[in-house]
Design a protein around this nucleic acid. Structure first.
Length: 572
RNA sequence: UGGGGAAUAGUGUAAUGGUAGCACGACUGACUCUGGAUCAGUUAGUCAAGGUUCGAAUCCUUGUUCCCCAGCCA
């Protein structure tokens, strides 16, 4: 047995669960839940919570419920419910029959409110929102009791019933818990339980005109579902005493709330409010813009669920409120895509290359490996002819130090094809290079020289006559700085938006094997990065998103050379 | 200046009184028909000061810094 192998480290929540199982709490049962409010799209931060909650249930043979926390009809919509379900499934999790809605419990919640009134623990308050705020006190000063705090049980019962009947306008009354207006925890200063909202709910329609607050709904919903471990983020830590108070006063099943640090990522924002702002202000195309940290954006960008899950596993779970490097997410993505993405050749910024000694009308098919990481992926034929496109970046008329690619007089390998030597450079009237000429060595067919000579560089290409013209969208970080919220006074996070986060290339060419590639399919464009077919694609006008670039050590060298330019060169 | 939390390499996370480890990043080098991948190596840390102890990241004391809370949002 592997009894003495080092156990993988447990995070603090797993430690709590294992301790509970050891003492036989809940008979060792584990039930968690993922409780989104359907008021926006899910993002990578939610993915952390989803992986945590569903992962714990899987690990300990328990269940994880999907519960929509839909207690505020003003902000919530069916569209969001649909997108959330799609995203959770896409991430690879299954809640089975355990799909619930806080709104399913409205009747029970109402009965519990009545129970609290009867016990003298809740009262109807006629203070306006502003007066309520004034009575609440401040962080350092205790609050004052509401003048309605001492109403009789009978009057409270009557008023609450009439609130439900719709006798009173929005905001005119609330139901409040009677706890302690002097508590240092503001959540315990007679929190509002119900507010009047004559709004139609996306599920209950017009059945209700009073709606429970989060605090009154969440814990009790957990209790109804017999959730054992109710995992939420740090900002709810202050709410735990209230969570426990309801459970205790009502005498119902008591789940345990545990708080962990939400995910933060460099070079992006994560709050729903800011994401919504980006969408509404049209800084991005929509919730699923490939630059967004939303699940739908990442999906469209070409991320895999596996990569996201692995990322969530690696960031860990703790109570430290820190920031994760987006480079880790990208690492997990490359790691996954490297194993599974078929390789193809695509030229993003084309430069014509003509092989002068290659027969004018000849075309031949060369064999290319589909995935060097996966022998079972096989090979494919790539057409080759006299006129090719190569990458503009792969040619320099005046090559810098350590540049291994094509330059006048230099010989390089065309991937899977031949060695070619540059013999001439053609420019237009403006001095722009428009075409280069080469000779090829027929003996190097396939890419190996029988005489054993080596070349420093191998570049990719497409045959001009056979290539498909496509649009390519290159993405960069949405923000130019690691922490977009770090702004000067008077500015907001949008001042850190990266103006170059999207670059569209409309003059790119890919090898013909890509014709008809389905939206969502992923490829590695050799030497560039991973790309996927965008849903905007049509048969005649394919669109590729760059999911993530390959690591580029030449770019680093070049950047280093820029940092310390050659002496003798002057800049005007 | 009330209350609740948190501090371990650049970043994230382990070590639960007994050798401070892992991952990402950065930097070397090897290899290579992708300047990819892979492999090898280097770099770098216990917030501070006291105390307890044979021994402290861990326990105690004091301090520092950061996060959260004054919605009829969640």
């Amino acid at each position: 047995m592997a009894e003495n192998e080092a156990k993988p480290a447990l995070n603090f929540i797993e430690q709590i669960i294992e301790a509970d199982r050891k003492t036989g709490k809940h008979d060792g049962r584990v039930a968690t839940r993922f409780p989104p409010e359907p008021n926006g799209y899910l993002h990578i931060g939610h993915a952390k919570s989803i992986c945590l909650n569903f992962g714990l249930a899987q690990k300990y043979g328990g269940v994880c419920h999907l519960r929509f926390d839909d207690t505020n009809p003003i902000k919530e919509e069916q569209e969001y419910i649909d997108s959330i379900k799609t995203d959770v499934r896409w991430l690879g999790f299954d809640w089975g029959r355990h799909e619930y809605y806080a709104s399913d419990y409205f009747e029970q919640l109402h009965a519990w409110a009545v129970q609290l009134i009867q016990a003298g623990k809740a009262y109807v308050c006629d203070l306006t929102a502003e007066q309520t705020r004034e009575h609440r006190g401040t962080l350092t000063k205790p609050g004052k009791d509401s003048p309605y705090r001492t109403r009789s049980v009978e009057e409270n019962l009557d008023l609450f019933a009439r609130m439900r009947q719709g006798e009173f306008p929005d905001g005119s009354r609330t139901l409040r818990a009677k706890i302690d207006m002097a508590s240092p925890n503001l959540n315990l200063r007679d929190p509002v339980l119900y507010r009047i909202l004559h709004a139609s709910h996306h599920r209950t329609g017009d059945a209700w005109c009073i709606y429970p607050m989060y605090d009154f709904a969440h814990g009790q919903s957990d209790s109804v579902e017999r959730i054992t471990h109710s995992i939420c983020t740090l900002e709810f830590e202050n709410h735990r005493p209230l969570y426990d108070w309801f459970v205790r006063e009502l005498g119902i099943f008591a789940p345990r709330q545990i708080e962990f640090a939400r995910l933060n990522l460099t070079y992006t924002v994560m709050s729903k409010r800011k994401l919504l702002n980006l969408v509404q202000a049209r800084h991005v195309r929509g919730w699923d813009d490939p630059r967004m940290p939303t699940i739908s954006g990442l999906r469209r960008r070409g991320y895999t669920p596996e990569a996201i899950r692995e990322f969530c596993r690696r960031v860990g779970v703790a109570k430290f409120d820190g920031v994760n490097d987006i480079a880790l997410l990208e690492h997990c993505l490359r790691e996954d895509l490297n194993k599974r993405a078929p390789r193809v050749m695509g030229v993003l910024r084309p430069l014509r290359l003509i092989i002068d000694n290659y027969p004018v009308d000849q075309t031949e098919e060369l064999t290319a490996i589909n995935n060097p990481e996966d022998a079972s992926a096989g090979t494919r034929a790539v057409p080759f002819s006299r006129m090719l496109y190569i990458e503009q970046d792969d040619f320099r008329e005046d090559p810098p130090r350590k540049f291994f690619r094509l330059a006048p007089g230099r010989e390089v390998r065309l991937r899977y094809a031949y060695f070619v030597t540059c013999t001439d450079v053609i420019k237009d009237g403006n001095g722009e290079i428009i075409e280069i000429h080469c000779t090829y060595d027929p003996a190097t067919r396939g890419g190996d020289a029988p005489d054993g000579r080596k070349v420093k560089g191998t570049i990719h290409w497409v045959s001009a006559a056979h290539a498909r013209r496509v649009e390519v969208r290159l993405y960069d970080h949405l923000f130019t700085v690691p922490n977009p919220d770090d702004v000067e006074n008077g500015k907001d996070f949008t001042s850190n938006l990266n103006p170059n986060s999207l670059e569209k290339l409309t003059e790119s060419f890919v090898e013909p094997s890509l014709a008809g590639a389905a939206p969502g399919s992923r490829y590695q464009f050799e030497r560039h990065g991973y790309f996927c077919v965008d849903p905007d694609s049509t048969v005649d006008a394919p669109v590729f998103n760059r999911t993530v670039s390959l690591r580029d050590s030449w770019a680093k060298i070049e950047k280093g050379q820029e940092a310390k330019p050659n002496q003798g060169e002057t800049t005007l």
